[in-house]
Design a protein around this nucleic acid. Structure first.
Lengths: 331, 331
DNA sequence: CTCGCTGACGCAATCGTTTGCGTACCCTTA
DNA sequence: TAAGGGTACGCAAACGATTGCGTCAGCGAG
């Protein structure tokens, strides 16, 4: 490898000077700068982040720990996070939590031993969050992304769920639906809980009563099955809210299998807009989550937290935008 | 931070011994081991990958540089790469190339300065690959993923394109189509080129002639437009091969806009299977790219290359599997 | 002529590990 | 009792940067 010493010798100066030239950290005579820069060029010197980190303490890298699921939005989030991060001169270390507590713990520990300057974390669904206290105790600057448990003293960024779902439900109510079902992801995820809350609020605003029969939550592969169950009720729903992407797919699949016409036979609105929303018939009405904004905001908050470790934790909720199409029954 | 010195003092031994206990790198008396481990436990010592790397030279981290596009398969690739990597005790550093040569260069340089043990790279489409020689000169173990330029002396892993596309075309030919169009991504990408080649081969095997009019390639957003142009021909195609995901979406969009019935009015087959392939009507026939296998193979090849830097470069092509559905016109 | 100042640069300590040599001790054996 | 061979551990030199102090030359002022 080509070290600073090599550059220094070639330029005929000390490594101190090379360091100062590269980091512009103290004035150096112009021609010396020239010689050093030339030496850097000919040697192809890249610098050594490892050695630098050892002495400065920081690594200019942050860790992103989340479940690498099939969520179609994930790429957009990664892109936003990476962009914001590299713009700030940091690099991104990725770790899959698999949405399991122990894997999450391992992921975070790996990041910590890599000495990341901060961590972006989408916590697992399991309630016994052992990793959060650990991060707090270790004093690792952390921002929670997407899912937002309550009363953690951490910074948090995520979508606004309550209002969004409420609006969705109210819209269905305004279209005359009286039996509106909700199919969400597994319990325990704050997102699902918030959407369930929004659902109830929306029902209230539409002057409808909440009926436990109409709410299905659980592992995603059961969404199709859940719909079957709902339709078998004595008073089946005439509209359904798909709380996440797998739920949407499950509903569409089940509807198709039963020859149900979405929009007329069964109204459908979904969270998580997808790029193929307009390619199915009818096009599905959905809320587009502001993932890119969430990613950017998370990075900015983390960088601020790193710069200023103390100071009150902040929570940011970004509103989704409604992509109003036809699956809700509107023409 | 809690260092090895802290652990050593608490355990009443030298840091040498602590190091040896932790790394199991030389025999240590059993009770000493116990004291050290206990000290590690109470201090919460995590080790410092930075300092370790400085002396050992390796970082046990590898860089993944690729365009963070909207490719729905990307998440699957990431998951596979991460899984294989963490299983081997490495961590993943992600860098977006934006599919632009200079961004790619910056990404790779960032990875290099972070001293990654190796690089997984999906090279940009631009021909003037300045980054490959740089990697070669620097002796960075590298595996090219997905796209496979020719005559680079690098290890490569990617999908098999020629045969796959050829089979797709032949299938259409067997269904009686005589005018088969191809819509691919931008030129210059080896993947697109290979699929174009497979297209020609398939035509030959179906005893059809190649017609320049029937081939459209270019930036993805033009796929819909490209289809319009094709349909306006005096002898329009009766079948179309969508060479990538954006092309598929474009074709579906355009067909829908024109009220064209896929399957009967226009047969359609696509590369890149998607999770919503069965949700559109008719379900789209597509080749499912073996992304997970590609990811795993890439990591394994890279780790082998790191262990054994010399040795001939290898190229691995993994065959996609055909998901035969109805959009090709089959019942 | 000397003092002080300024601009330009180098010395050497430091960061937290790993690891090649040593050393100290104990136990056997002759 | 001394030689020889283990066993158990510590010393100190790297690794490649950053950075607080120094040093040194040149120059204008008193």
């Amino acid at each position: 490898m080509v070290t600073m010493r090599d550059v220094a010798e070639l330029a005929g100066v000390s490594i101190t000077t090379v360091s100062h030239v590269i980091n512009k950290t103290r004035p150096v005579a112009t021609d010396t700068v020239g010689r050093v820069l030339a030496a850097v060029e000919t040697t192809g010197y890249t610098g050594d982040a490892i050695a630098r980190s050892l002495v400065t303490g920081g690594t200019r890298s942050i860790g992103l720990a989340l479940p690498l699921t099939g969520d179609p939005q994930l790429t957009a989030l990664l892109r936003a996070v990476d962009a914001e991060l590299t713009a700030a001169g940091h690099t991104l270390i990725l770790a899959d939590t698999h949405d399991e507590a122990d894997r999450e713990g391992a992921a975070v520990r790996a990041l910590r031993s890599r000495r990341v300057d901060g961590v972006l974390l989408t916590p697992t669904t399991g309630a016994p969050e052992a990793v959060l206290p650990e991060l707090r105790k270790a004093g690792v600057p952390t921002v929670l992304v997407g899912r937002m448990p309550e009363h953690t003293g951490f910074d948090q960024v995520g979508p606004e769920n309550v209002q969004a779902t409420s609006d969705l439900v109210r819209h269905l109510g305004e279209l005359g639906h009286r039996r509106i079902a909700l199919i969400t992801g597994p319990d325990g995820v704050s997102t699902a809980a918030e959407r369930a809350l929004g659902y109830r609020l929306g029902l209230g605003r539409a002057k409808l009563v909440w009926d436990a029969e109409l709410v299905a939550s659980g592992p995603s592969q059961d969404a199709a099955e859940a719909l079957e169950t709902l339709l078998a009720l004595s008073a089946p729903p005439t509209a359904v809210v798909a709380g996440d992407n797998p739920a949407l797919i499950g509903v569409l699949r089940a509807a198709r299998r039963r020859g149900l016409r979405i929009g007329s036979d069964l109204a459908l609105v979904a969270h998580e807009d997808v790029d193929w929303a307009e390619l199915v018939d009818p096009a599905v009405t959905a809320t587009a989550q502001p993932v890119e904004e969430i990613g950017r905001a998370a990075v900015r908050m983390l960088l601020e937290r790193i710069a200023n470790p103390d100071g009150p934790p902040r929570t940011v909720r970004l509103a989704p935008t409604l992509m109003h199409r036809q699956s809700c029954g509107c023409p």
